[in-house]
Design a binder for these strands. Sequence first.
DNA 1: ACCTGAACACCGTTCAAGT
DNA 2: ACCTGAACACCGTTCAAGT
Lengths: 212, 212
Amino acid sequence: MLGTVALLDEAGADALTFRALAARLGGGVGSIYWYVGSKDELVGRAADHVLGEVSAATTLPDDADPVDNVRALAMAVYEAIARRRWLGAYLMQDFGFQPNSMALYDRIGQQLQRLPLTTRQRFHAVSAVIGYVVGVSAELDHGPAAIEEMADDEREAFLERLRTTWRAVDPATHPFLAEVTEEFEQHRDEDLFAAGLDLLLAGLRQQASAAE
Amino acid sequence: MLGTVALLDEAGADALTFRALAARLGGGVGSIYWYVGSKDELVGRAADHVLGEVSAATTLPDDADPVDNVRALAMAVYEAIARRRWLGAYLMQDFGFQPNSMALYDRIGQQLQRLPLTTRQRFHAVSAVIGYVVGVSAELDHGPAAIEEMADDEREAFLERLRTTWRAVDPATHPFLAEVTEEFEQHRDEDLFAAGLDLLLAGLRQQASAAE
DNA sequence: ACCTGAACACCGTTCAAGT
DNA sequence: ACCTGAACACCGTTCAAGT
């Protein structure tokens, strides 16, 4: 289990094979199946383990604004997935069935229990936040590394590809792309994630205040 | 290309192998590489092709509210991914580099150009909407089929698994799960998606009206 | 220019056999 | 009870050879 996380962190999702893991643990390929039924289960457990650490490292003060607390939790999960690129894809699998993901779901929900919302509104809001966080973060797994973490030459190559793709389109047919190309080149992935999250949370705050 | 979409629709992502596709087209495995450089490119092109159809089938009236238009487009993409479970995973790959995904990105952006927002706000908002739609829809690809489309016995088995998992947790430590279990069992995936989207769009409307 | 299909270098998973 | 590793049934990709 620990060996799985270490191997994923060191070499990425592609490097996690039963043969590589068995070699690292000094055993045979088949022995892993004594502890785990499939590769999906193996990585799912590893992902849930990491999620537990992330959740444990984030404290939510009782006297803080509940939506601010939800935001703090969401940003912590985002950062974890951004750091460990293999994580997002597996959290999408069956979030809500592993112990730590259930606990995280509940923890977000508890914050919303402090707001004047219906049960259905709470259910929708928690699902939306989790969906946004996991879904958008997982998109990072594909695509290139975060723009802000690329080496200089790597970033330059990526932006060059972007420029030639985006700037090749006709501004007359793609007026918005023309407007935001420069903005895209300068953005940080984390700011983009946070801005979308804040729109979602603004909608939530509005819903809560309308009920008062 | 058309054969690819047909094969994916009929038998799902797992069934799309070069051998199966070559057999269907009545050719050798190697010949596919004359038209496409890799499997990722093959499925990416198929995904972009479907996205183009979806976008073309959605008309956005000039006299309609721009945010309502964005909502219509988002729901159309959601429905397409919900129907074709293989689609979401590949849209995550490199949305914004294929022609039809670029066109869709631009089309959403054009609606926002009708609102009093800064370029940065527009960039953030379009990215958030696309991120939410593609990310949350893609989560459907994993997990079970939509609850509302399951056969009766299949749905019963899924809900039974959920009940035993969620109801096994201590309500004292998981008070929110206890509150929403029933709500979860009754929900429709599409309503859940729409509710989160509406929170996001409410935040966006608020941002636009604050600028006036 | 376009196609063929055997061959290569991998996978996850199984299972008879060991301790 | 726990481990081994050869064997099985696949993959995507390559490439010398064909038309």
